[in-house]
């Protein structure tokens, strides 16, 4: 059986090396919890990833919670979650403490003037590919476009968009599949 300490260390490792977050860390998690530790079977891992992606919240945390629960129940969850959260917590806290002093340094401000537009490009560039893999068609493209306009121009909270999307998906399913 996995010890709490082992669970903590494994997820601390995962939490420390997930630069950029999200999908980049899936192979790392798989290697650690399936290949090395055997806490999940390959097939369980694939199913779990689907669930971790559909639930709200960061995928890294959702995965840690699922694996921690499978390995040692609720106490396992505490150790796996702490392991995942702590590396980023420590790093960002240090940055927040130091950066507030650094920020007004003219050199640092110049660096960030260059970085800011690049960050916007980083957010916008994957949209086309994501749209293709989500199966957006000429008919359905209107939904993300309206959502973007409502949030951008009318300052509508994205929470309403998310609720509408869930209800819309259910309604569409009800009409087309008649269940």
């Amino acid at each position: 059986m996995a010890s709490y300490w082992q669970i903590f260390i494994s997820f601390f490792k995962i939490g420390s090396f997930t630069l950029g977050g999200g999908y980049a860390m899936i192979p790392l998690i798989q290697q650690e919890v399936v290949d090395k530790k055997g806490w999940l079977k390959e097939s369980e891992f694939v199913e779990m990833m689907a669930i971790a992606q559909s639930a709200p919240g960061p995928i890294a945390l959702n995965t840690a919670i699922f694996v921690g629960y499978k390995a040692r129940g609720v106490k396992g969850v505490i150790f796996s979650s702490l392991g995942t959260i702590l590396p980023s917590f420590i790093v960002i806290l240090l940055i927040a403490i130091i950066f507030t002093d650094f920020k007004n340094n003219p050199g640092v401000e110049r660096v960030f003037k260059g970085i800011r537009p690049a960050v916007v490009a980083l957010i916008a560039a994957p949209l086309y590919k994501m749209g293709k893999s989500a199966g957006v068609s000429r008919k359905t493209i209107i939904f993300p476009v309206i959502a973007a306009l409502l949030v951008w121009q009318l300052n509508l909270s994205p929470i309403y968009i998310i609720i509408a999307a869930i209800l819309g998906g259910l309604l569409y399913g009800k009409i087309t599949h008649k269940f």
Partner: peptide, 11 residues
């Protein structure tokens, strides 16, 4: 429904 609409939120 979410998969499609979330793209709008990213936009």
């Amino acid at each position: 429904g979410l998969k499609i609409t979330v793209l709008g939120l990213i936009g």
